[in-house]
């Protein structure tokens, strides 16, 4: 059976969501092909940028667009940008980014939830970028989110899974796809997220700042597939501390 993940009834075989910002437009096609990506994020504010160098002209038609609401500082603005994305023909998928801190670009969970409530009711496939908090993830699920997108580390930091333990809690407890977003800096970190049971990984800066963008996209694809296969295969046990005692501790039960 094909290994897929589902977002509000939409099925995907690729578990690599590629970012499109921060690199040259003429490399987007090659990056998508090498990544084997079926979904690409784009900032609507870039897509609304006029006729010259418009990012939309560089994305192949068969790729699902995941417009994001970057630039929104609160729920109202995120909702307005989402509606605009739909009007511009970008489809029903929307990644909610509600950010009111220009320094760290950390998501505002409260505003994100408010936007999710509104947009899910309007039929959007809502994919909220969020700080990994279990209670909040439950609220998002109840509000109609199609997945949760916890950050691994601050956007653009390439620091990897700084929030690993909290993402694992979401994977264990939330019956929605958990897509690790932001902070993934290397293929090995993407692989680690997938080994943990993440449904997919989203990466942008790690690829955009590589010397060879298409090749890095390929490296991520392979790492994500390896991590997914490892998860499906079931990781072997790792003994962190101590060795097995030669005299069993429970031997007395059989005496």
């Amino acid at each position: 059976m094909e290994d897929t993940f589902i977002l509000n009834g939409h099925q995907f075989t690729s578990r690599f969501i590629l970012g499109s910002g921060k690199y040259s437009l003429d490399l987007i096609k090659a990056a998508i092909e090498n990544a084997g990506a079926q979904m690409i994020t784009l900032a609507l504010r870039r897509a609304a940028g006029g006729e010259i160098a418009n990012i939309l002209d560089y994305i192949p038609d068969n790729i699902t667009l995941l417009p994001n609401t970057s630039g929104a500082r609160n729920a109202d603005e995120a909702v307005r940008i989402a509606r605009l994305a739909r009007e511009m023909g970008c489809g029903d998928f929307i990644k909610i980014e509600a950010i009111r801190d220009t320094k760290y670009l950390l998501p505002d969970n409260y505003e994100t939830l408010k936007a999710t409530e509104v947009l899910a009711k309007e039929g959007f496939v809502v994919m909220p970028y969020m700080y990994p908090d279990l209670n909040f993830a439950r609220d998002l699920r109840n509000a109609g989110a199609a997945c949760v997108m916890p950050l691994g580390a601050p956007i653009g930091s390439n620091k990897g899974l700084c929030t690993k333990d909290f993402i694992k809690i979401l994977i264990d407890e939330i019956d929605l796809p958990v897509i690790v977003d932001a902070g993934i800096g290397k293929p090995s970190q993407a692989c680690e997220a997938m080994e943990m049971g993440a449904a997919a990984v989203m990466a942008n800066t790690a690829i955009a700042t590589a010397r060879d963008i298409p090749t890095m996209a390929l490296a991520f694809k392979k790492a994500i597939e390896a991590g997914r296969n490892a998860y499906l295969a079931g990781l072997g046990t790792v003994i962190d501390t101590g060795a097995r005692a030669s005299s069993p501790l429970t031997g007395f039960l059989h005496d």
């Binding site: 609507l44 504010r45 940028g49």
Partner: peptide, 20 residues
């Protein structure tokens, strides 16, 4: 200027903004 930006491997961006 557009061409000079491209020649350096950089991407000219005309707008990265939405008025909301």
């Amino acid at each position: 200027v557009y061409k000079a930006i491209e020649q350096q491997g950089l991407q000219p961006v005309m707008s990265d903004y939405i008025y909301v």
